[in-house]
Amino acid sequence: MMIETTEVLGKWKEFTLINDTKMSVSVLNYGGIITKINVPDRDGNIENVALGFKDYRDYEANPPFLGALIGRVAGRIQGSSFELNGESYPLEANDGENHLHGGSKGFHQVIWDVTPFQNDVNVGLTLTHKSADGEGGYPGNVEVKVTYTLNNENQLSLFYEATSDQTTPLTLTNHCYFNLSGDLKTTVQDHHVTIDSQQFVELDEELIPTGAKPQVEGTTFDFRLGRRLGDGFNDEYQQNKIAGNGYDHYFIFDDNKEQQAVVREPNSGRVMSVKTNQPGMVMYTGNSLDDQMQLAEATSQKYLGVCFETQASPASLHHEGFPDVRLNAGEKYEKETVFTFGIE
């Protein structure tokens, strides 16, 4: 096992974690961005399964948030404001009238302090950042630590820790776009996904939760027994159409199964499982990916990747009965998501 470090653009560092089975994960200190995940297919071909830019300068703006750490709050906050303890907090409107992924200066724009580590069983990186009271419009001085760990079982763990001296909304995630075909050979329409969820969060035309949590049964949102992602791309179901003919929705986990989600790609034989102690996740199928972006292996296009953004729900700031994003003063935020890569 080893860690390689390279300078990028004279101002960032890229750390590459490599295990003994030749799986590797590359991460920038800028935005905590995962730039590449190289894993074998059923024939032993090692290929990249994460979307990344060909030109690293494109990470500076990174409108699709490729591979980035997201905070303070992952997802959209309705009306770019929230109330906490009777006080109203206005936020930047960076997605129409709404606030998205912590704003334009969110954690995806931060240069994190990074400490590499390795031992007999894993290699990893500890990323830390102090977010000052009022940063992005949010209350509280927040100390954040995110640990990326790769082991020899081809498991990539993201462990998120945070504390705040004031009660504040906080839910962190990573916005990696996965494509298990390898080196972007095809879109994700034939990816077969299973999700342990019987309820999802309904969206309005601005992709803001309405407050309703429909049952998945009888819809293209029923992934309990598994289905092709492409089932929802051309479906007439209104919730698919609202999201740009795909998925951009929060699924509430039932926690009946050991893994909350499993993804299979039939041609490569690659399988990725998602295990987390988060209460749900947004599954986003790249419905708005710009067809002008130059990615490492191909020009970007709609449906070229799928995100599994494990997190709580920002809808909890405006509606009752949703997984809560509030972190109380002095409380410890501890969440982990493990992506396990295999073949079949």
Rank of each mutant, 00 (worst) to 15 (best):
Thr219Asn: 10
Ser268Tyr: 06
Thr285Glu: 06
Ala298Arg: 14
Ile242Met: 14
Met281Phe: 14
Ile242Pro: 15
Ile252Pro: 12
Asn240Arg: 06
Gly280Phe: 12
Glu265Tyr: 01
Ala298Gln: 11
Val274Met: 04
Asp235Asn: 15
Gly232Asp: 08
Asn267Val: 12
Glu258Ala: 09
Asn240Met: 10
Ile252Gln: 15
Gln292Cys: 02
Tyr284Asp: 00
Thr219Trp: 12
Phe233Met: 06
Asn256Met: 13
Gly286Lys: 02
Tyr237Lys: 01
Tyr284Glu: 00
Asp290Val: 04
Thr219Leu: 13
Arg224Gly: 00
Val271His: 04
Ala261Gln: 06
Thr299Phe: 09
Glu217Met: 10
Ala261Tyr: 08
Ser273Gly: 07
Asp235Lys: 01
Met293Ile: 11
Gly244Glu: 05
Met293Tyr: 12
Gly230Pro: 08
Thr299Val: 15
Gln260Glu: 14
Pro266Arg: 02
Leu225Asp: 12
Glu265Cys: 01
Gly280Ala: 04
Gly230Lys: 05
Thr285Asn: 04
Ser288Glu: 07
Gln301Gly: 06
Thr220Trp: 13
Ala243Trp: 05
Leu229Gln: 09
Thr285Asp: 10
Gly230Trp: 12
Asn267Thr: 13
Val274Gln: 01
Gln238Leu: 12
Pro279Cys: 08
Glu297Ile: 00
Ala243Phe: 06
Asn287Phe: 08
Arg228Cys: 06
Arg224Trp: 04
Tyr237Thr: 02
Ala261Trp: 07
Arg264Cys: 10
Gln301Ser: 13
Val262Trp: 03
Asp290Leu: 08
Phe221Gly: 03
Glu297Ala: 03
Ala296Met: 07
Asn245Leu: 05
Phe221Arg: 03
Phe253Asp: 03
Asp290Gln: 05
Asn240Leu: 05
Val306Asn: 01
Phe253Val: 07
Gly218Asn: 13
Tyr247Glu: 02
Gln294Tyr: 09
Thr220Asp: 14
Asn287Met: 02
Asn245Gln: 11
Asn234Arg: 03
Met283Trp: 08
Phe223Asp: 00
Ser300Met: 06
Ala296Ser: 09
Asn240Lys: 03
Arg270Pro: 11
Asp248Val: 02
Arg224Gln: 13
Met272Leu: 15
Asp255Trp: 05
Asn240Gln: 04
Gln239Pro: 08
Leu289Lys: 00
Ala243Met: 10
Met272Asn: 06
Arg224Ser: 04
Tyr303Glu: 03
Asn287Gly: 00
Ala298Trp: 08
Glu236Asp: 15
Gly269Arg: 09
Asn287Cys: 04
Leu225Ile: 00
Gln292Ala: 12
Leu295Phe: 11
Thr220Asn: 08
Asn287Val: 07
Tyr237Pro: 00
Arg264Tyr: 14
Gly280Gln: 10
Val306His: 02
Gln259Pro: 06
Arg228Glu: 09
Ile252Phe: 10
Phe233Ser: 00
Gly232Ser: 13
Val271Glu: 14
Leu289Arg: 00
Val282Cys: 10
Val306Gln: 05
Gln260Val: 08
Asn245Cys: 09
Tyr284Lys: 00
Asp222Pro: 15
Val262Ser: 04
Ile242Phe: 15
Gly269Phe: 09
Gln301Asn: 07
Arg227Glu: 04
Arg270Ile: 11
Tyr250Lys: 01
Val306Gly: 03
Asn256Ser: 13
Leu295Val: 07
Phe251Pro: 07
Asn287His: 06
Thr220Ala: 12
Ala243Cys: 15
Phe233Val: 05
Gly305Ala: 00
